[in-house]
């Protein structure tokens, strides 16, 4: 139950700050009410952004597939010379 407590603690701290803002009315009341919604929306945006950026810069390695094919041929050649029957898979 450790990590969930950390996250709950963080949420509690945020709620405390929010409650504080509600009480002290440092910022107009109407705005303060909307802050949690902003938080949720910005979290969602952050997630989407991270997925989007992650997709755009997704590292691919087409050359590795060709290299691997070469390695496989080399290995098969060796195995054949050693008389190991791996069958046609």
């Amino acid at each position: 139950m450790k990590h969930i407590l950390k996250i709950l603690g963080l949420l509690a701290a945020l709620s405390a700050v929010w409650a504080g803002l509600l009480e002290t009315s440092l910022i107009p009341y109407n705005y303060v009410w909307l802050l949690p919604i902003y938080l949720i929306v910005s979290l969602g945006c952050y997630g989407l952004l991270m997925v989007g950026v992650g997709l755009m810069v997704f590292p691919t390695c087409p050359q590795e597939a060709t290299l691997l094919q070469k390695d496989i041929l080399e290995a098969k050649d060796f195995l054949m010379r050693k008389g190991i029957d791996v069958g046609a898979a």
């Binding site: 997630g47 997709l55 997704f58 087409p62």
Partner: peptide, 29 residues
């Protein structure tokens, strides 16, 4: 697989999307 010098081959867009989504979710939580 997700840093410079690493990488993946043979995944379609759906697989990449799932993988990224799963990763962001895990990193955040």
């Amino acid at each position: 697989r997700y840093v410079r010098g690493g990488g993946v081959h043979g995944w379609n867009l759906m697989r990449k999307l799932t993988s990224r989504g799963a990763n962001v979710l895990a990193q955040t939580l």
